[in-house]
């Protein structure tokens, strides 16, 4: 599938809705369509309950749309089974979480290495890649450290390195600065900017308009509907 301008989008949602069954049927996503081209830097904002978490789960292949088509890196994810979705997730998606989710008993180097554990990256290349991404996030000097000895900003940079190591089609960040103070938030956002400048597709979900302001494309979620500003 190709986009309007002839480039195949990394992410393409067409008419995606997600409803949750219950006493009252909840429409978390209502007819959402979006395209993210390679190299885009997209932010999605919205108040809590607007459906942005659901959107992120759908984009991260952790949830399935009730209706609609989701193409990730050219692959229609609708007909895929759980194993194929896991494989696609391993190959194309890099997650950055608000809570870092670094493993406390492993060094920075090992944590980044774990990012490729399930990914289709040749094992012979993995060590080199870890070194390269640690360089990229300026954490080479901390490679042998354990996460507990790092500051919040450093931890998030390690988490970004872990997401980047396998070379994902898109970096999905969920409130990446939610646990950080203003200054370190700025550092992490600067890092995102640098990565994007180097060609990395980045998609950030946040409730903070200041963070959203860094992105070239800003989208807002309200009541399950997505609109670009």
């Amino acid at each position: 599938m190709t986009g309007v301008d002839g480039i195949e989008p990394v992410i393409a949602l067409e008419g995606v809705s997600r409803t949750f069954a219950g006493a009252v049927k909840v429409f978390a996503l209502r007819d959402v369509s979006m395209r993210v081209a390679p190299g885009d830097y997209v932010s999605i904002t919205g108040p809590s309950g607007s459906g942005k978490s659901t959107l992120l789960n759908v984009l991260g292949l952790l949830d399935r749309p009730t209706i609609g088509i989701y193409r990730l890196a050219g692959v229609d994810t609708g007909p895929l089974g759980d194993t194929a979705r896991a494989r696609l997730r391993a190959a194309e998606l890099g997650f950055v979480f608000q809570g870092f989710h670094l493993m406390a008993k492993r060094t920075v180097f090992e944590n980044v290495l774990l990012g490729m554990a399930y990914a289709p990256v040749p094992k012979a290349e993995r060590q080199e890649r870890v070194a390269a991404v640690l360089e990229q996030v300026s954490m080479t000097h901390r490679a042998a450290f354990f996460p507990a000895t790092l500051s919040g900003g450093e931890r998030q940079r390690v988490a970004v390195a872990r997401a980047l190591a396998k070379g994902p089609a898109v970096l999905l960040a969920d409130e990446p600065t939610g646990n950080l103070d203003a200054q370190t938030s700025g550092e992490v956002l600067d890092l995102f900017g640098e990565l994007n400048a180097a060609g990395q597709t980045v998609l950030v979900v946040t409730h903070d308009p200041l963070i959203a302001g860094r992105a070239a494309r800003r989208m807002a979620m309200t009541d399950g509907r997505l609109e670009e500003r």
Partner: peptide
Amino acid sequence: GEIGLRRALGATQR
């Protein structure tokens, strides 16, 4: 948390 992380990294349920 670790289980969630592994799934996000591409681990299957299996």
